[in-house]
Computed example of a mutant assay.
Amino acid sequence: MTAARSPAAPDGLSRQLIATVASLSAARDLDTVMRLTTRAGRDLLGCDGVSFVLRDGGLCHYAEEDALEPLWKGRRFPQEECISGVALRERRLVVVDDVAADPRLPVGLYRPTFVRSLAVAPVREDDPVAVLGAYWGRRHQPTPAELELLQALSNAAALALANVELARAHHEAREAERHQRLLVAELSHRVKNTLAVVQSIARQTLVRAADLEQFGDRFLGRLGAMAEAHGLLVTADWKPVPLHAAAAQALAPWQAQCRLRGDAALTLPPPVHLALALVLYELACNAARHGALSVPGGRVDLDWRLTPNDDGRPGLALHWREHDGPPVAEPLRKGFGTRLITGMIGHDLSGRCTMVFDPAGLHCRLWLPADP
């Protein structure tokens, strides 16, 4: 418990109020504003306690106090049940010289405290966001000068809160500008990478195509697979994409002949998703031209699970298996699709790719590290 304070002399009041306003103008957060205001209130008014009460919807939140002994700090009351609510609703200064005799006050709320008289002033009179309350432990009729000081301090707190809001808005604007610069840089990086991949696919497809019609079909197919993979990322706000969704999208044209099995909650980071989407598309296109997806009764199983590789490094294993298609034979030379698969898995994702050309159907085993 701290001793009651005597109000400063008139000259001292002016100097102290000016100093308080200066300190409040430099405050940049709500806690500092409330702490400075309640401390200054006790010094300026010589009262036994001051509280800073925030409007919290329909409640009064006693957020800060400087008093002889604890009052209601941290508690919330309906506006209809406390005098601070009157000041908030009626947008005016309220004085109670005897808390026991005023019908607007719940006596039970004040009986356990030292409070016998009080005055509360709205913070921002036109649209109050808070209330500054001054309390006396004896019957006291605040003088006009004391009430003027209380309202002046409330007005200073209102200006300080406006400054805090401006500072917060300025900080958020700067953060938004910084975030925008990062987004532009990231977008530029992604566009360059995407164009490089598109150019490489275009060159390799053109070299391997028998004619322009074949080039157009295969290039547009690969470009479409890339576009759909990017679309899934945009929908996910460039966050990790569920592997099941990525595989289902890549194999959508052949969904009736494909069975997907694996952890539905497992997700892929954007770079892994983009690469794996192209890999699955190439496997499916190869199966549609030469393998199980080239005949009505053929089917493909795609399984995945988290598993370490031979040296214990954690990662993701995928197994592509074709069934009931035409007999499979190992090609005499690797086409662009095979090189794209092995290149993306081995080079881009630091993984491993093994293809087994079983006459009963192609088996392709992929392993990707957990942190490519």
Rank of each mutant, 00 (worst) to 15 (best):
D311H: 13
D358T: 07
E228G: 09
A264I: 07
A3L: 12
L274H: 01
A9K: 03
R139W: 03
T20I: 07
C60P: 00
G137L: 02
S23I: 00
D48A: 06
C258Q: 08
G41M: 03
D237F: 02
G221F: 06
R218H: 13
V131D: 01
V95F: 06
R178D: 13
V95T: 12
H170A: 15
A4M: 08
D127A: 11
R203V: 13
D29K: 03
D43M: 13
A8T: 00
F215Y: 14
M226V: 07
S350F: 10
D371T: 15
M355N: 10
A173W: 01
L118D: 04
R181Y: 07
D102G: 10
A229E: 07
V99G: 06
P270M: 03
L276M: 15
E322Q: 12
A292S: 09
S51L: 07
W304K: 06
S84R: 00
D43W: 06
R218D: 13
L24M: 04
L233N: 10
V115K: 03
M355K: 09
W304G: 04
S25D: 15
L36M: 02
R42W: 00
A156F: 12
V328R: 15
A167F: 13
R111Y: 02
R261F: 09
P144Q: 08
Q249R: 11
P269E: 10
R305M: 12
Q214Y: 00
T354Y: 03
R261Y: 05
P372E: 00
S188H: 07
G12I: 01
L13K: 12
P142I: 02
R333Y: 07
T194I: 05
G335K: 02
V129Q: 12
T2A: 08
R92F: 03
V53A: 03
V123R: 06
P240W: 03
T194G: 14
A26V: 09
A246L: 15
A210W: 05
A156K: 08
